[in-house]
Amino acid sequence: MRLLYFAWLRARIGQAEEDLALPADVHNVAGLLDWLSGRGPRYAEALRDLSVVRVAVNQDYVGRNHPVRDGDEVALFPPVTGG
């Protein structure tokens, strides 16, 4: 799975993207966020308040129950502020 991080999530996690093998017991966005939070203090800090974390799977906004699978492009970012 390819993970992309943007804005302050990128800054806090310390990288813009990474390729990770998805654990067999992670099936949806909520599970992915929970697993990522346990990957180290940077992830735990970046994902401390999930109310300000948005997720896109394969470049579409999705909710927490959306399925994830190896091969997906998953992006984590704060609420958008363009325009």
């Binding site: 302050w8 906004y61 992006a75 970012f77 704060p78 609420p79 958008v80 502020t81 363009g82 325009g83």
Partner: peptide
């Protein structure tokens, strides 16, 4: 178009201020 763009297009603004750099927060009004 401008109303939808502000809430749906994946852009993020970071501002340079006298206190340092800060990320702009999304506004409920948008």
């Amino acid at each position: 178009l401008i109303d939808w763009l502000k809430t749906d297009a994946p852009f993020w603004k970071s501002e340079e201020t006298p206190q340092g750099e800060r990320w702009v927060e999304a506004r409920a009004e948008d």
